[in-house]
């Protein structure tokens, strides 16, 4: 069974985004880190701020959002992003 992921303390995410710039800036109050995120990373974290998601759910919604195929390349990118976010303490997985 796939694990479900969600944002670590969703109310601790602060975003600054400029319409003419591709990458978003995120400040996470818990970890104290400030990060620059590509559009996929931004999308995934914002999604996980709203609700718990499995990697396949995330891959599907990212495909819909960016209007691309939900292929294995995207699935890998989602997986890799989740691992990175996890190591930064931005997301945690369901322990139920």
């Amino acid at each position: 069974m796939e694990r479900r992921w969600f944002a670590n303390a969703p109310d601790q995410f602060c975003w600054s985004i400029w319409p003419d710039e591709e990458e978003a800036v995120l400040f996470h109050q818990g970890s104290g880190d400030t990060l620059m995120l590509n559009p996929l990373g931004e999308f995934l974290l914002k999604r996980l701020q709203l609700e718990r998601q499995t990697p396949s759910e995330l891959t599907r919604s990212a495909a819909d959002f960016f209007e691309i195929d939900a292929n294995s390349e995207l699935a890998d990118a989602v997986h890799l992003s989740l691992l990175t976010f996890r190591s930064l303490g931005l997301v945690i997985s369901d322990s139920l």
Partner: peptide, 13 residues
């Protein structure tokens, strides 16, 4: 307080 809560989340993870 926030940092401790976050650190605990990491321990739990």
């Amino acid at each position: 307080v926030l940092a401790v809560r976050w650190e605990i989340s990491q321990l739990q993870e």
